[in-house]
Simulated scan of single mutants.
Amino acid sequence: MALIDKLKEEQKSAMKAKDKVRLGTIRLALSAIKQREVDERITLSDDEIVAVLTKMVKQRRDSVAQYEDAGRQDLADAELAEITVLEDFMPQPLTEDEVAELIKNAVEESGAAGMQDMGKVMALLKPQLQGRADMGKASGLVKAKLS
């Protein structure tokens, strides 16, 4: 089943269950996906939908940090609930060992010799890690490996 179809089915289920948080979050996700499709005049693939969901999760994590710094735990909890719903539609996260193995393989495959080759390594890693690992952490691991 395509990811967009899964989102729409879960939207129906959330409506029937009267789960307002889940329904609202799924509607936001579908809206973001539709907006990108309209803007770019394309139909998004599952990988591109995962990228949209990943961006939404990242935005919510940033919001949680800001709300907690401001002492607004109620708003932080709402964002965390949305993150939980969004993560249901994302692929299983990779373990640190799996990420390290992918980085090692990408460095070998690209023939990277130093920091100037970091872009080549990241270009190989991005499709494999998208939505499954934190790209910022992966970038730090690649830097450490190449330096």
Rank of each mutant, 00 (worst) to 15 (best):
L102A: 11
V50H: 04
S147M: 11
E40S: 10
V142D: 09
G131F: 02
Q11G: 09
E82D: 10
L102M: 07
L141C: 08
D77Q: 04
M1C: 05
V38G: 06
P91M: 01
F89P: 08
A144N: 09
V57Y: 02
V121G: 04
L30G: 00
K143W: 12
A32V: 05
E40W: 07
K143L: 14
K20T: 15
A78F: 07
A70F: 03
L86V: 06
A2N: 14
G140L: 15
P93A: 05
L30W: 02
I42S: 03
G119E: 11
T84D: 07
E98R: 01
S45R: 14
M118D: 10
R41M: 13
R60P: 02
L28Y: 05
R132W: 04
S45L: 05
K8P: 15
D77A: 06
L53E: 01
P91F: 01
V99G: 01
E109I: 11
S31V: 04
A123H: 10
S31Q: 06
M90N: 01
E9S: 12
M115H: 14
S31H: 08
L3N: 00
L129H: 03
S13A: 14
K137T: 04
K34W: 13
L75F: 05
S110M: 02
A123I: 13
R41Q: 13
V107K: 02
L141W: 11
A65K: 07
V50I: 03
P93S: 06
G111F: 08
Q66N: 11
M135K: 03
D47E: 12
Q66K: 15
A29Q: 07
V85K: 05
V50N: 00
K55M: 13
D74G: 09
Y67S: 07
A138R: 03
